[in-house]
Design a protein around this nucleic acid. Structure first.
Lengths: 273, 273
DNA sequence: CAAAGTATGTTCAATTGTGGACATTGACCT
DNA sequence: AGGTCAATGTCCACAATTGAACATACTTTG
């Protein structure tokens, strides 16, 4: 299955110093030229909050390289549940609302890295003038929606073990870094589950040689094994990315995507005690 | 708490025969005039599928009166999980993708009633010409996204009892009909949970005098009681509707919204056997 | 190096939810 | 009125998950 992370594409359309974000790289030359002067480069540190619920959305952020951002919905009891994960394949900030509206969720940096940002107003103005820009952002908005849709179903239907594996794959896919610097506490909290159970899940994954643990994070050593444990939700979303952004997205120079062959898919043992 | 279902608003802007859908009623006179010739009226029967995953989205449907439509994500094992519920407060069909793209989910009619529909291309053309139309639809898209976000969190964090109550309130809010013609099987399936457990939950609700059961559906007799059992997810979403569509949405002539007073909120007994 | 703080490993009882089984009941058809 | 089918009530054994508790580390700081 081809994924958006590994599509070959007619070269030559992108400038030499193409920005390391797939949406920006997918821009037509004209659009890139129009946006260029408004793009600012920053480095994002873990834990930085881009938007709190209710904050006005003044910028659109494009994670670059390994940078990773997630949307969290805050519940009455103070918990914050992750609803979507965005890396260099996308952008955050008024993607669906088109820059008009207060943020619904908290938007937090999960993995450090460079980002580019542009004023929401500037982007919207450019979109007004460029059909291809509107097209690209509408397509990405649809993919983001699909991702969130799938998460609704996933949270309703799949086990914690599956969802944990799914999350790790999603992160890996985007950062390309096998090291995931999250405490088990943080991981549990994002998934909305108990910490002690995550601890057991991770113990299982470790016992199967899929990852190594350390204080403050894990390191995935065998991504294929993760894929065989996870539900198909990631694949479904990737596939929608492919359908929707095919022919729009650029080449991914070195893919972090996990290619699953039939043989990699074992039944997957069912969490002993 | 004011909800979008009960806002007072400067009258006189809407025509006499205002369509019974809040988005359409919120249109400026000019926009309504532009769309009017393309709007077709239909009646929707329960179970009718508007879109299967992958289908091209050719029309945007506006549920009117009690009509209710839901998005379902289909999982690998054949289950279909509901991700969002749309009634007369909104619309379905390319809301986020702006009419360009294949559907990600299955879109099914859950409650019968009239709908208006318009060709997706016609709506998009009208949006190109009218900033106020773009504004309204971008705002609604954001609300739909918020609803789905909240469901991700809800499915991760709340009990089946809470989610069942939440679903019933959401349906009631939209249809205004206290009768919910869904089998327990269907309800369980949408929520992604076991049928026998839903049966027990409903038994509890019945025992507390909150609803009556019958074959093929339930009838809510005490909506306030439901609100005291449900999680706050519905309220959070309603509140976002208010923030985002305040001053845009029209009066709701007869509100189905459930107003909760402090006294209505009891601790809520925790599911005995 | 000692102390403090935080992350992890592990256990356990209790609760929540599953899925199968089967009896019962209503609705509808003839 | 009887037959049939689907929906519901109910029970049960079992699996999944919680949440508290505590011991054990690793890291940082002074």
């Amino acid at each position: 299955m081809a994924s958006q992370y590994e599509r070959a594409q007619s070269p030559g359309e992108l400038s030499e110093a193409a920005p390391p974000n797939n949406l920006l790289r997918a821009l037509h030359q004209d659009d890139l030229v129009a946006l260029q002067p408004h793009l600012e480069s920053q480095r994002m540190e873990v834990g930085r909050v881009l938007y709190e619920p209710g904050d006005p959305v003044r910028h659109v952020y494009f994670p670059c390289g390994p940078a990773l951002v997630s949307f969290m919905v805050l519940l009455e009891d103070g918990r914050g549940i992750e609803t979507a994960l965005v890396g260099r394949e996308g952008a955050v900030g008024g993607i669906v609302s088109q820059g008009r509206l207060p943020s619904y969720s908290r938007t937090v940096v999960q993995f450090p890295g460079p980002v580019l940002r542009i004023g929401a107003a500037e982007l919207e103005q450019a979109k007004m003038r460029s059909p291809s820009l509107r097209n690209l952002f509408a397509r990405y908005a649809d993919c983001l929606m699909a991702q969130v849709f799938q998460s609704v179903a996933c949270n309703a239907a799949h086990s914690i073990e599956q969802r944990t594996a799914k999350w790790l794959i999603a992160a890996l896919d985007r950062t390309g870094d096998h090291d995931v610097p999250l405490t088990q506490e943080q991981l549990a909290s994002m998934l909305g589950v108990g910490r002690s159970y995550i601890s057991r899940v991770i113990k299982q994954l470790k016992a199967r040689g899929i990852l190594e643990t350390r204080r403050g994070g894990v390191r995935v050593t065998q991504a294929g094994g993760l894929e065989s444990i996870a539900c198909g939700c990631n694949r479904a979303v990737r596939s929608h990315f492919d359908d929707v952004l095919r022919g729009v997205y650029p080449v991914e120079e070195e893919s972090a995507a996990i290619k699953v062959r039939a043989g990699d898919l074992q039944p997957g043992s069912r969490m002993p005690g």
